[in-house]
Design a protein around this nucleic acid. Structure first.
Lengths: 346, 346
DNA sequence: TTTTTCATTTTAAACGTTTAAGCATATTTT
DNA sequence: AAAATATGCTTAAACGTTTAAAATGAAAAA
């Protein structure tokens, strides 16, 4: 790697000061009253030498890097990789570059990512926060460092955030199942204290109650992030073996659903006759399941764009008021909840 | 955002020069012969003030950013997002941060990403190159800038690269179909001049020939990146309507397969009886298709790790010899190619 | 006592930019 | 003709680090 061309080289070539070159290359000729011919000479030299500005040097001087940090649970999860894509594009349009990190839902990893990104002087952060990371975020708030939470949020943390109405969406999902004739609805959720998940559970319970159905403990199964397949399949098995066996499943995310569906598929269970299925999020897999899966769609484009908008707003005014943007969801009805008009299976 | 604590603040606090502080904080006390007590004082002050080094300043001074650029076709494509994850983890272990960009298979976007990343002074690049980006890469080579190609490569470009044996893998796939009793094998590929795709086509044709099957023009369908669904479904429709209608399809990537399978699914075509299916790569969708899809697995972990290893090696020695790492593939046989023992469907 | 050696610390330059302030010289205004 | 203003360019400092080289002072050797 040969030495790069700097502003100094251009200055030498043309026989002027580096300041002059900087003014010209930043189109500040007017303000700096640079002569027309000299400006041309500088530009020509820059082109000829193929000058490329050193953004690191510029950042050091300006204190801004035009870089954003994005922290998700796992970039290899399609939900997050799609969000990443939307944010990447939107950020690029604003002249920003994005650096991405995966927290694996661990507060410790989240902390080191935040710290690594801050040390790299990112101008702002977009974070799908992990459990128990409130304190890290509170510190950011105290420092008035611009950031926006996506997908998740924390009660009592007055940060910017973009997410759906988890209670209502879950309520609607379960209500849909019940309206379709299912009564014994089981739910598979993540084993986490994150409010968005707890809201989904609350929505589930709320819908059962509103329909006069008494929930059973065995109907609510939780899976840990680290041993997803194992826990989900255990949970599904347990429910299917229960005396009060559910006639429908509500999956709280697409990864949970994909894992559960694999088991259900393997067992040859008939959907939607024997078992109704509804899930949050989307997945190619939902389309190919023998009974295409009904799901609650959240617009990832909207989430990504809203997050970037909020972040830009706050970077302009770090002391400004924090906003919560709620993104609408839509229930996409398909075959997996199309219960035939028969009696409940006992 | 209050002013960050710098080495200067520590120096002032302790009453020493910034040089001293820098030596201590970089554990260069020995070489710099710093007194034991002073060193302790510095460390204490750093901890007390919660000092965090400004990596931008360090980079400007050192000329290295500990940052790698990753350019893929589309980070929202699971194949690439998984690669990104593997590379992210491996890079972190080496103390590097990764910035990611999507080229959308366009040489122009690739060029601006490369340029943006270089301006940000990344120490190295990992690139899944787009069509017609040879020149950009040749420039990197000429500058002795460290980079590694993944998934794709260019003939006559002596760069580091990590990829599979596309010819052989495609050959094996088609040969598998034929061994299973399919004879009229159609292929859906990307409409691109990228060698890895052309190799897959060559492997397809080679296997047909080796089995004494004359290929038909209509059996080879191409789809553009930008209008994937449209082109794939056109291609599939055309083949199914042809006089010499194929009895098996070979998809050159998972996105092509997912798109094609949606159509096939919609048409109610019987797989594997009426039509055999084999594809490159993996997908959750393959598991849920009514006949789970046989596919050619490439180990993404291996690709990512090998790429990072090569890159690290070259960053240490930018003038070193370039290496090509070939990653093994494996044919995962499932129901979609399990042709029953019947006569060919006419 | 003078010189040498050693231990500890500081100085200063450098990385590549940006930008306020300054300095000539020319031109206009009075 | 003197004063005021314009024009065109340079100087120098700053951003936060690192690091070679110099400086200081004390201890050891002569």
């Amino acid at each position: 790697m040969e030495k790069k061309v700097s502003i100094k080289d251009i200055a030498k070539q043309v026989g002027v000061s580096t300041a002059l070159v900087s003014y010209v290359l930043n189109n500040k000729e007017k303000e700096a009253r640079v002569g027309r011919e000299v400006a041309e000479k500088v530009r020509r030299a820059a082109r000829k030498l193929n000058y490329q500005p050193n953004l690191i040097a510029r950042s050091l001087q300006s204190g801004r890097t035009q870089t954003l940090g994005l922290i998700v649970a796992d970039i290899s999860n399609p939900f997050f990789s799609y969000i990443a894509r939307v944010i990447e594009d939107a950020a690029n349009q604003h002249g920003y570059t994005v650096i991405i990190g995966s927290s694996d839902e661990q507060a410790s990893k989240s902390a080191s990512l935040i710290s690594a990104f801050l040390n790299r002087q990112v101008d702002g952060l977009i974070i799908a926060p992990a459990e128990k990371s409130e304190k890290q975020l509170q510190n950011l708030l105290n420092d008035h460092f611009p950031f926006v939470l996506i997908d998740r949020y924390f009660e009592g943390l007055s940060s910017n955030s973009v997410h759906i109405d988890n209670y209502q969406s879950a309520y609607d999902a379960v209500d849909h199942l019940i309206k379709k004739g299912y009564r014994r609805v089981g739910m598979i959720t993540y084993d986490t204290a994150l409010p968005h998940m707890k809201e989904r559970v609350r929505g589930y319970l709320g819908a059962l109650k509103a329909n006069g159905i008494r929930g059973r403990r065995v109907w609510l199964q939780k899976a840990g992030f680290a041993r997803l397949d194992h826990d989900v399949q255990n949970g599904v098995r347990e429910m299917l073996a229960a005396k009060e066996r559910p006639d429908a499943f509500f999956f709280a995310t697409n990864s949970l659903a994909v894992s559960g569906l694999k088991y259900i598929y393997g067992k040859g269970i008939r959907v939607p006759e024997e078992l109704g299925i509804i899930s949050f999020d989307e997945s190619d897999a939902f389309d190919f399941f023998y009974a295409p899966v009904t799901y609650i769609r959240q617009s990832i484009e909207d989430i990504g764009k809203a997050a970037l908008d909020l972040l830009m707003k706050q970077m302009k005014n770090p002391a400004g008021k924090k906003e919560q943007t709620i993104i609408a969801t839509k229930l996409i009805e398909r075959k997996s909840t199309a219960r035939p008009e028969t009696k409940n299976i006992k």
